[in-house]
Design a protein around this nucleic acid. Structure first.
Lengths: 274, 274
DNA sequence: CGCCGTGTTGACTATTCTCAACCCAGGTGG
DNA sequence: CCACCTGGGTTGAGAATAGTCAACACGGCG
């Protein structure tokens, strides 16, 4: 049910069969959501986590005059609100970009899982850190890159993330995102996104049509994008024997302790005071 | 030593005297860093957390051709890398904007603290969530706002954050950040920052000179900035009796469980596999 | 068949950038 | 004590990137 999540987590750690089974069980409570619907709205108070199983969604904010900024893209295997659900209310929305199958996971379930399987806790934490790193990179993207670089960068990232959850067929991935949505993501107008995409196509770097992205020349696309994949932290990706390579073990030496206890709900609520 | 941090955390929860003392003790190992020096560099592997006690710093990335994007501002009471230090290596830099006094906190110390004082763990977590929310808002800022809105928004945010740690005197706060650094923060050229600031001054919204910001007309500045303070999540700020107001207690009902266990370092390191 | 969402194109506009010069205050060295 | 240097701020002029508006093409679907 949540096989993709297993694949994703195995980019960060290795899981036993039992652990894999436990992760897959997260997908038990599912529902389908149409394209362009909200899963989470600003102001909501949540007591569950949402996991995307199929389809694509995004995190976004809307300014009073209607301007919209997309803050994150979610692909299958991504949690929409793994950590944010602690805050009293959501300060942003999560909406679907395509038809989506989401799993809803009760807080309690997640707590039990991570209590029972520390390695899973660790992998989830790692994945959350990567999400944060992506958010930071997006600031660099909109703040410091030109239009062509931005578009190319997003395509690189999308492709690599899709590949990391096993959703790439050769150099082709699904990307059912309209040019308007790309514009809202990249801080560009639809028209400019359109022209920029045409340039990238003309350069022979990509094919993007019918909601499908083919990366024709990844190295060159990365170069155009000024793309450095280090922020995705796929340390051990594509390695058959992750972590067995002690030659680089030293660099991980003391840096893996986890700042991520899962505690009972009652215990730590903000009030009343001591 | 770390009184500011106590003030900040009390925006989120209330702490007992003992808890306050424990938090203040975090400032025991200090050092001074000159302006424009790096505290953390891309590629570093950290086993300690840095807490700003005095002065200002920032998180930033540099593209190969020299373009720089500042991703976060740190003011006194802020942690530079509360959660990021789990990743094998830093994917960005942290550098000072002014002379800074930083506390270095060993992982072990932090673990002991949060193990011993769950309410502190909760407050730290909350604070980390606010940092994330700020990062998200910055994407909106560079992606969707005009130059004037961006500048005004940053000034609002800076002022409110400073106020939240008790560093505002009336409507004036320290802001020792050059226009070039503002440009690197906001994705604007220095020249354009300069002209935009002049417009804001001419409008009678702010005074900014000699590294000091005075917010002359906060409501109007917020309006110009399209500023909505909800993302700062100062739920209980400025309230004399936080959490005693049960009328809104319901909205916090089940949303405060913490996904943040502090675990022993050895236990969860990524390898070797099971 | 006609409508709607999406992509595409052209023509014009405007926001923002670049380059270059100049000012001013503070610090340094002769 | 002054000349100089440097970093930051300011200004002007021209250039470039990106936005706006409006029209049209195309395919799917009711």
């Amino acid at each position: 049910m949540a096989k993709l999540l297993v694949t994703k987590l195995e980019n960060f750690t290795r899981l036993s069969d039992q652990e894999k089974q436990a992760v897959e069980a997260l997908g038990s409570h599912q529902r389908l959501v149409d394209a362009r619907e909200d899963i989470i709205r600003e102001g909501d108070v949540l007591d569950a986590v949402h996991l995307i199983l199929e389809g694509f969604a995004c995190r976004y904010k809307v300014l009073p005059d209607g301007r919209r900024q997309i803050i994150a893209h979610f692909i299958p295997g991504d949690f929409c609100n793994l950590r944010a659900f602690i805050l009293a209310e959501m300060d942003h929305n999560v909406g679907t970009l395509s038809k989506v199958r989401v799993a809803t996971i009760k807080r309690r379930t997640l707590i039990n899982l991570t209590d029972g399987y520390p390695r899973i806790a660790q992998a989830l934490w790692w994945s959350a850190m990567v999400d944060e790193a992506i958010t930071r990179e997006w600031i660099v993207n909109v703040g410091a890159r030109t239009a062509a670089e931005r578009v190319a960068h997003l395509l690189c990232e999308h492709y690599l993330r899709m590949r990391a959850v096993g959703l790439a067929v050769a150099n082709t991935v699904e990307m059912p995102i309209t040019q308007t949505e790309l514009g809202d993501t990249l801080g560009l107008s639809t028209v400019h996104v359109n022209r920029t995409l045409q340039d990238l196509r003309a350069e022979g770097l990509i094919v993007l049509r019918e909601r499908t992205l083919t990366v024709v020349d990844l190295p060159r696309l990365q170069q155009v994008a000024v793309f450095n994949p280090n922020y995705l932290h796929f340390l051990h990706a594509r390695s058959e024997t992750p972590f067995n390579d002690q030659s680089r073990g030293g660099t991980n030496g003391g840096a893996t302790a986890i700042l991520m206890p899962l505690t009972n709900e009652g215990e730590l609520r903000p009030g009343p005071p001591y």
